[in-house]
Amino acid sequence: MRDIAPAMPGAVAWGVVTGVAMVKFGLAVSAALGLSLTAYAGSAQLAVLPLLKDVTPVWIIAATAIVTNLRFVIYSAALRGWFLDYSRWRRLWLGYLSGDFVVVAFTNRVATEGAFLHRDAYYFGMALTNWVLWHVASIIGIVGAAYIPTHWGLEFAGILALLALVVPLCRERPALAGALAAALVAVLAHDWPLRLGMLAGVIVGITVAMWLDARKRSRGEIARVAQ
């Protein structure tokens, strides 16, 4: 519990904002509750809201959800080594409950202590705390949204919450360049049908980021050889 305490205010605020934003983007309360309880994915949930509002085809919504969740593929690859001696069923739920904060806290502890005893319980404890907080917060947001006038423009808070995720990720240069390229293409191709402009932006952005990343890597190798 103590190890994720610093992340709690952010998680609660993020949950409330997601809840409010879902309703203010026009989702029925039942749909908002369903989405929140099953998806348990702040960024993907917020990301699909504008798409749902524009009645975008379901496959584009699914693609968007997968792409915004891809960072968890990296996380689970990093976590896997620590959990391989547990049953698959247990690992399935460990995966589902993972979140950004939990993964960071866990990797910090195994980095200093190695494969400590009951690390699954430690992980479960943190993940479950995070899960409960998240759901309580987003339900408060969903229910509370009915009492907030629409003209306050609170759906914009959902956009700001996503922005709060993007900006810190842009510290690495390939990520920054990729994000700028993705945004530029998405703006230029905004009038393409079915939000394909956004997908084009994502593809161009990833290509730019990968290219810069490969260049950085090969420079690093040249520097090592030169020593």
Partner: peptide, 20 residues
């Protein structure tokens, strides 16, 4: 790994900036 790492930030940027 690079593609997986950079995909989310690109997707979020492509989504957020036009929204703004």
């Amino acid at each position: 790994e690079a593609a997986l790492r950079y995909a989310p930030v690109c997707a979020l940027a492509a989504l957020v900036v036009p929204e703004i």
